[in-house]
Design a protein around this nucleic acid. Structure first.
Lengths: 212, 212
DNA sequence: AATATACTTGACCGTTGGTCGAAAAATATG
DNA sequence: CATATTTTTCGACCAACGGTCAAGTATATT
């Protein structure tokens, strides 16, 4: 049995504990001792595997997006599928992953300003955008080669789309009503279709993304 | 001498102290006692004016953007100036304000992961986008009426532009090299010009915005 | 002068993130 | 199997934190 396997098991135990606790309360109100207790290990052991409380959170977010990110990479490689379909699948893959613990948990007993989740959200946004950008860029580039998309800055376009969608999807940076989100999304689609010479309606699937 | 005046003086003293300290180190490494010490008052007094450490930060950010936001509102009202010029002025006004303490301070002796500034940045982004949105929307609406801009979702367009620019300007959510920022910006301009039937080049001033 | 109100303060409290040395478990070596 | 060596576990411990508070001082009101 390889060492990494065993080490991984313990690490997963800790991450599971944190993930559980995050569904109950906010990070700022979760102590390292609490994580240890929930994981059924001593507090000291936590610091054998992680350098800081922050590092645990980082690892959890990374783990949560391992699978959808892999999906994204595979998607980027499948050139026989239309770039738009692949984009749609990419966004779907993100949606379906365990973003659950990112969502607001208003039922908690403890109340701190909504801003307390800043850590989590900042990390989520940062991670998902930067990881997805290369794949989406690749997809767009292929769309340009196929002549289905007309635009000179594929990487920039990928980043713009990801930023807007991720920020609106997160809904904590700029809390919005579903109507407002819908409007922004429509605007983005209109801008993209007109700005990249895509046939109107091609991108309409984006509005089907199950926001919040 | 009105009471609010005196109270305001003390509050400004506290905010000044925090602003100073933020130029030296990260919030997580700034203690409330330290703020009090720098402000020349007792720690207890801080809690006479603010309910929490977080609230001090909120107030500082709000104070920092009072003037540029006022400028933005005035700008929105001046219909005789071209909407593009007003947009440029708006972005300039934001740049010139005291965003200094938002910037990364790599020279500090203490080292925590860059993510520690999450609070600050989250609040900065949230504040500046939501406050500027109505004004930019108004400017765009006027541009549409003038026939200078063609687009069906002015509010959405304002939000999209603000999100992308603010996120890239902040440069902490998605740390980028100046070249990458330049590329994204060029892409945004191209997308806007093509997507809203603006004459090419009209928006090029955006690339002059002194990014980081 | 007396009373009431607005403001100031630092000692104090409960908790926290993180350290540490020792113990225990696991593994390797003979 | 025993012994040596490394890896892993642990909770008492620490300094430091955010926040409270009762007691004090200034200021205004009568």
């Amino acid at each position: 049995m390889p060492v990494t396997q065993k080490k991984g098991k313990k690490i997963d135990l800790i991450l599971d504990a944190l993930q559980q606790l995050l569904e109950e309360k906010k990070i700022q109100n979760i102590s390292v001792s609490e994580i240890a207790q929930r994981a059924g290990i001593g507090k000291g052991s936590i610091y054998y595997y992680f350098t800081s409380k922050d590092a645990i959170l980082d690892a959890l977010i990374e783990r949560s997006y391992e699978k959808p990110l892999l999906t994204a990479q595979n998607l980027a490689a499948q050139t026989e599928i239309s770039p738009f379909t692949r984009m749609a699948m990419l966004f779907q893959a993100c949606q379906n992953s365990s973003v659950a613990f990112i969502q607001q948990n208003g039922s908690s007993s403890d109340n701190a300003s909504a801003q307390d989740l800043a850590f989590l959200h900042q990390k989520y946004l940062s991670h998902v955008i930067s990881e997805l950008k290369p794949d989406l860029t690749e997809i767009i580039k292929q769309g340009i080669q196929n002549g289905e998309i007309h635009f000179d800055y594929p990487a920039a376009l990928a980043e713009i789309v990801l930023i807007v969608i991720a920020v609106k999807l997160d809904n904590s940076l700029l809390p919005s009503t579903p109507q407002e989100t819908e409007e922004t999304l429509k605007g983005l689609i209109a801008l993209l279709e007109k700005g990249t010479d895509i046939a109107p309606g091609t991108l309409s699937y984006l509005s089907l993304v199950p926001f919040v």
